[in-house]
Amino acid sequence: MARAFTPKVVTANALVEGDVVYLTADDRWTRDHAEAEFLEDEAHAQLRLLKADHQRDRVVGAYLAEARMGVTGPEPIHFREVFRTRGPSNYPHGKQEAGNV
């Protein structure tokens, strides 16, 4: 039996800056995980990923990442995705940098 689909978000890296981005329900790319579209249906998730793949002049390497619904919006599950929402642990760079969150 196929494994049950678990909720996802579409994530990628911005083409020019390389910063982590997420696809929103209204077709924007946001830098905030909580604004991402929460994808609970597998067929819809695949369609959204296809949409992301076609935006070759804006993002790179789109994929579906596991997520759960939190208080303010979708939250990452795997520690790799948690790191991607904030940046490296050795400097306050990336999204955690002041003014960049």
């Binding site: 890296n13 800056e17 390389g18 790179v60 790191f83 991607r84 940046g87 990336g94």
Partner: peptide, 22 residues
């Protein structure tokens, strides 16, 4: 250029895409 086309070209010049940035 698509990313698939560009990737080998950027790698020939030492440019990677990492977790948070290039």
């Amino acid at each position: 250029l698509t990313e698939d086309e560009f990737r080998p070209l950027r790698l020939m010049n030492g440019l990677y895409l990492q977790l948070h940035a290039y």
